[in-house]
């Protein structure tokens, strides 16, 4: 089942001098874990904002083309309606958190939707537990470290149990171990609850293992769209400057030196497996 379908999206921010999106078309199936990557300023964040209607409803300007999310035409629905289906975790958690207590922030979206009190309590507990921040429940979000705030922001969206979670560099402030834990959490939500994940990410060394679909953007356009190993091993990815996982990159430099590996590794496990075979070949 298709959850996100974008056709010919073109958009310029009011006052902007160039197109943030140019003829963007993508199709995302239910249950996919999509990594959206590309050079800074390539339109990744703008595309995320289209998925829940922030572009153009909040940012203004005219969005050409058509986008359907969970069957809803984004242009015909309000942001609050779309919020039930699409949860967006912002790049900068400070822009998303505002309550005096973490718990209140996580409950906010649910309260707005008029979810019964008991249910709110249950979902808040669950979201705090999933993101491992139960101990921060009564802390003020603005006093937390960047990484802790990022977890709170994810918990806020998690609590809404959306069909699609859109995360704009959700672990950028986290230490690598913390990032891995968050990726694990997101991956679990993806696998167990079937939530479709669209994640903007540059740290492909850490994130690639979780993904089955990679979209690369450059200058407002989608330039690569496919399976991780195909996208990462393409010449175009290297030229655009995508942070190709070291496992894939290593296999490329070896191939260039005449060492045949036979397949393209994306994770470190895959790479060591391939290399073991090569090293014990003779």
């Amino acid at each position: 089942m298709t959850v996100i379908e974008a056709k010919g999206l073109t958009y310029t921010y009011p006052g902007g001098t160039r197109r943030a999106l140019e003829d963007v078309s993508i199709t995302i199936e239910k249950g996919e874990f999509v990594i959206l990557t590309g050079p800074s300023g390539c339109g990744k964040t703008t595309l995320c904002r289209c998925l829940n209607g922030l572009v153009p409803n909040f940012y203004g300007g005219k969005l050409e083309g058509e986008i359907l999310v969970t069957g809803l035409k984004v242009s015909e629905h309000q942001i609050y309606e779309l919020a039930r289906h699409v949860g967006l975790v912002f790049q900068n958690p400070e822009n998303q958190l505002f309550a005096l207590f973490v718990e209140k922030d996580v409950a906010f979206g649910l309260e707005n939707l008029g979810v019964p009190r008991d249910e709110i309590r249950k979902r808040v507990d669950w979201a705090l537990q999933m993101t491992n921040i139960e101990n921060l429940r009564e802390r003020a979000p603005h006093e937390l470290s960047g990484g802790q705030q990022q977890r709170v922001a994810i918990a806020c969206v998690l609590a809404m149990q959306p069909d699609v979670m859109v995360l704009d560099e959700p672990t950028s402030f986290l230490d690598p171990l913390g990032a891995q834990q968050i990726f694990d959490v997101i991956s679990r939500l993806n696998k167990e609850l079937g939530i479709t994940v669209v994640m903007v990410e540059h740290r492909l060394d850490l994130a690639s293992r979780y993904s089955n679909h990679v979209v690369v953007m450059d200058k407002g356009k989608v330039v690569l769209d496919g399976e991780p190993k195909d996208v990462f091993s393409s010449e175009a990815a290297r030229l655009i400057g995508v942070g190709i996982p070291k496992a894939t990159r290593l296999s490329q430099v070896l191939e260039m030196s005449g060492v045949r590996l036979g397949r393209v590794p994306v994770t470190s496990e895959e790479a060591s497996q391939v290399l073991k075979e090569v090293l014990s070949r003779d």
Partner: peptide
């Protein structure tokens, strides 16, 4: 582990290759 980071991907790959006589103190491509 104590600092809550993870080793570079290259280090992780080579840790698995130690049995084959590869060095384990590599960090980059």
């Amino acid at each position: 582990t104590q600092a809550s980071i993870v080793s570079p991907q290259i280090t992780q790959i080579f840790l698995e290759l130690a049995d084959l006589g590869m060095p384990i103190d590599l960090i980059n491509i």
